[in-house]
């Protein structure tokens, strides 16, 4: 099944592994992600921090392209893109705001935009937990994982529509369906320090350290992320966090798609695991062949939606 897809800029740069594993896992699930043509950057935090209308113009151009293509639902892996696109759609309902934004665009934006959803929710809608279970090829039963959504995915609740804004559980459901042990990770929606790693390194280092510290103390084998920026702060900047916290961390930080891919028996290379700064080799050692592969879904198995 084809899905319109907005990868976001980091997919083409620092989070190429997220992109690679998302494509691979979706392919297994029978989801064909089709990039909308000529998409541009959503503007991320800098755009809306500078000006809401500028941010909305950048997002509207993408939503407009999707609308022209007749897309009903657009999937994106990045919570920041998702947040900006959804905020824009909401703000464009205001005619005065829309008029100001239209002034910035080549052509006025389409009157109706398609809905935008995270790839994670797209997967859950595409196949239920049983569907996922039927693809399991490796036993993740030895893995204890700390799910980490970051601060943007679930809030504000009325815009993001991602379950309880304090306690989303969709990732837990997917990881559990893959057979892993999932921690009730209290800082799952805490902020990692976002893009302030560059202008205010100490702040980001300290915030990331807090998350890494808790995952370490809870004896997680890995943190599982859903956001390119979070993953970079927790993984690539892990030494900065360790230095700031005067601690030693060795916490692999994988994308949820990489974990799912491992459960599906995909190769580390296919999932871009070599891009991780903190090696996932300890995790790979804990994987075992799945004892029995259930071809038929279990009766009454629950949906992750």
């Amino acid at each position: 099944m084809n899905y319109a897809y907005y990868p976001g800029c980091s997919a083409k740069g620092s989070s190429a592994d997220y992109e690679k594993s998302t494509q691979a896992v979706c392919a297994v699930l029978g989801m064909n992600l089709v990039e909308i043509p000529g998409w541009n950057c959503c503007g991320s935090t800098p755009a809306h921090a500078v000006d809401t209308e500028l941010s909305a113009a950048l997002c509207s151009r993408n939503l407009d392209i999707a609308a022209q293509q007749g897309v009903e639902k657009l999937l994106t892996p990045c919570p920041s893109c998702l947040s900006n696109l959804r905020h824009t759609a909401k703000r464009m309902e205001n005619p005065q705001f829309r008029a100001r934004v239209d002034e910035l665009l080549d052509n006025p934006a389409a009157p109706d935009f398609p809905g935008v959803t995270s790839v994670m929710q797209g997967m859950a809608a595409h196949c239920d937990a049983n569907g996922i279970a039927s693809f399991i090829r490796k036993d993740l039963g030895q893995l204890t994982l700390a799910p980490y959504y970051g601060c943007l995915m679930s809030r504000p609740a009325d815009i993001m529509d991602f379950g309880d804004p304090e306690n989303p559980t969709l990732m837990e459901c997917l990881l559990a369906a893959c057979g892993a042990k999932v921690l009730d990770f209290p800082l799952k929606t805490a902020c990692c320090g976002a893009s302030y790693g560059i202008p205010e390194r100490t702040m980001t280092a300290r915030l990331s350290a807090r998350i890494l510290r808790l995952a370490t103390d809870m004896k997680a084998d890995a943190i599982v992320a859903a956001c390119p920026l979070c993953q970079m702060n927790l993984d690539l900047r892990q030494p900065q966090a360790a230095k700031e916290a005067d601690a030693i961390f060795a916490m692999p930080v994988l994308y949820f798609t990489q974990i799912m891919g491992l459960a599906f028996g995909l190769s580390p290379d296919t999932l871009g695991l070599e891009k991780l700064r903190v090696s996932a080799s300890a995790l790979l050692d804990k994987l075992e062949p799945a004892p029995s592969i259930s071809k038929t879904p279990v009766e009454g198995g629950q949906s992750c939606e």
Partner: peptide
């Protein structure tokens, strides 16, 4: 902070996408 935002947005302005 503002300098960082502008640096980011300048790449978007030039190429349509951000460039790290």
């Amino acid at each position: 902070v503002e300098k960082f935002w502008f640096s980011f947005l300048n790449t978007v302005r030039a190429f349509g996408r951000s460039w790290e």
